[in-house]
Nucleic acid binder design. Structure first.
Lengths: 375, 375
DNA sequence: CTGTTAGCGCTTTCAA
DNA sequence: TTGAAAGCGCTAACAG
């Protein structure tokens, strides 16, 4: 490591107060009204005379005035900031999802702050406290494979914000708006597809073994369809907090190499795992889907273009992001709205890797089956 | 779409002032000192008598006091907030990188705001203004495949922050700290490897054709190594602002299907593109690396476990993230430091898909060749 | 509909 | 080393 010295330019503007541009006072003076009136033109437009408001807005435009949100928050007003607490788990799909949510919120002039979140981690409580202290207007909280359905501290923290949207796997019924994406239906659809196309011995390879419901749904449906559920049909590849490709590989190697692979259909917890399985199967000389049918989950952008194209389940990211933003902004506008529940069930997305002909001649069901409820 | 109504619970805590926990005044009262002194214990500890400070800190702890950062910012103090402006471009690698940066900053008790950034987009200027108005302490700005080397407005905006770190492809020499990851070396290494292992006709498939330097470096080295650079050896798969798998596929299909694929070595702009190419080649009945050697870029976590394992270039994410955080925090502590430049060149990472024996018996060079400079 | 007046919780002179 | 006092820019009563 070399250390050279070729100059000594140093940065100006060290500590100290920075001038932050025009203030509402400047605008007010220019228009000839009081500070309060000028300010109202922004935060309570409906309390200001049409003409006055226009004059203020025009002056503000001319002076390039923008409200200082620290000051606003401090005084109890809105900061146009929302926290997005998501369990990223290192998967590209999750981070992609938060980007969609972020860009959707930005469309509504809200500034999203995205952060990793795990309700089982006590540190997460601090995070929410910090958000409240910073005057965040709202929070979006994803309770993903959550081990529980009740987090009393969380429910309490949520009440500190003007708006809160929960993103869940199943309706939680907390006192806030909620978007639910049920994945059980997709798991059952995959099981039925496997059975219908002549598969006999299905397996599931997934992380988060803790979250049993999806595994149960899959095997329940498998048995109803007369497939054989072998003793070790659940292959858990969870290790740390996130999926580790090396570990997935290691599990497959130690459990199956040298022996005959006993399954003819594999459901993977997500597309990344499916890709790893696919590579491993190829290496073993097994063909997808001829020898083993393979289905992933969450539909990564590249999945449709792999060889063979990887079947998956549609996570409905865009719709979810739009719903979240809609719920949040409407709540911010009208705090007294009743709590709302939006259901966006996930569905099996047929592609070649799943084998056999696609279900009823299409790549997915037509009825997406969403529900809108006031709870 | 069904609309049901099953209740009318509504949220409390609509607008209005929220009580935000203990204030510095409460702490001061409890200890028996003035507000100013208590506050100094946090923001200017060295101006307070040892004993007083300890008493204040202890009281704060007991009362679970945390400074209100909106107030602090408003009064001109630090907000412990930094903006991370990164060109995500939808690639999982970029988002993964920002997560590393974020978690590194969090270790230093800084709160990162990650946002998409493109210096060629005029809207980005607003973004920085907004950050300044919100009292952000610093910004991390990635100037990626940037078309230019000078962005006067950007350099000016940067001066509004206490700290700024630039993340670039090549040293830019602006008046702020900088981390540079040169990728040209890696491109040259790949070309040399292809030549050494008997490949004759290399191609490059990449987005961002605008950024020609890496393409030039690759073909320059190819020619020096006596490989044949065919007329259409640059396959541009750029369409929108981000890589679109469908478009990559489309380009490959329209240009090569039905004809013989003229190249025996392909360098892809990133691992995702490489995966798409690999699938496409398989579909054409071409084998990697026997018929076509393939190298990606940026080393996605799953790349090492694909079939065949995908060669790539090490983006040195972790080191980069650590450097960024180190530069930022040190600048915040000591504003008068000279500007610093850290160089972290990227290197070729051999794996099976690249064909032939690995370069000098290893998977990569030992000398990582970093530099530390004061400019 | 508009102006006046208090703060929000902190930092920062300026004296003591 | 500490305290008193004056804001930072805005919102929120409360009068007019």
């Amino acid at each position: 490591m070399m250390i050279g010295t070729t100059g000594q330019r140093s940065r100006r503007n060290h500590g100290g107060r920075r001038k932050a541009g025009a203030s509402i006072e400047d605008v007010a003076r220019r228009v000839g009204v009081s500070r309060a009136t000028a300010a109202r033109a922004f935060s309570n437009a409906h309390l200001v005379a049409e003409a006055t408001r226009e004059a203020v807005l025009e002056a503000a435009q001319a002076m390039d005035y923008r409200p200082n949100l620290m000051a606003r928050g401090l005084a109890g007003g809105r900061t146009n900031t929302v926290g997005v607490l998501w369990s990223l788990g290192g998967t590209p799909v999750a981070t992609g999802e938060t980007r969609l949510v972020a860009s959707e919120l930005e469309k509504h002039d809200l500034m999203p702050y995205i952060t990793e979140f795990n309700p089982d981690d006590p540190q997460s409580e601090d995070m929410l406290g910090e958000f409240a202290r910073r005057g965040f207007d709202g929070v979006v909280i994803q309770i993903s494979g959550g081990t529980r359905l009740e987090y009393p501290w969380l429910q309490k923290q949520i009440a500190r914000f003007r708006a809160a949207v929960l993103v869940s796997n199943q309706p939680l019924g907390w006192d806030c708006d909620e978007v639910t994406r049920d994945r059980l239906g997709a798991y059952r659809e995959v099981a039925r597809h496997f059975a219908r196309t002549g598969r006999r011995r299905p397996a599931i390879v997934a992380a988060h073994h803790s979250n049993r419901t999806k595994v149960e749904a899959f095997f329940d449906e498998s048995e109803r369809c007369r497939m054989e559920v072998l003793p070790h049909a659940v292959i858990d590849v969870q290790k740390g907090p996130q999926v580790d490709p090396a570990h997935v590989r290691h599990v497959l190697d130690t459990r199956f190499t040298g022996r005959e692979f006993p399954f003819d259909a594999v459901m993977a917890g997500n597309d990344e795992i499916a890709i790893l399985i696919s590579a491993w199967l190829m290496e073993q000389g097994l063909r997808v889907p001829d020898d083993v049918a393979l289905v992933g989950f969450d539909d990564m952008p590249i999945s449709a273009f792999l060889f063979p194209p990887l079947a998956s389940a549609d996570r409905r990211h865009e719709e979810t992001a739009v719903e979240i933003a809609a719920l949040l902004t409407s709540r911010l506008e009208e705090p007294d709205l009743p709590t709302r529940l939006r259901e966006l069930p996930m569905h099996f997305l047929w592609r070649t890797s799943a084998g056999g002909p696609p279900p009823d001649g299409g790549s997915g069901p037509v009825d997406t089956n969403e529900k809108e409820t006031q709870t």
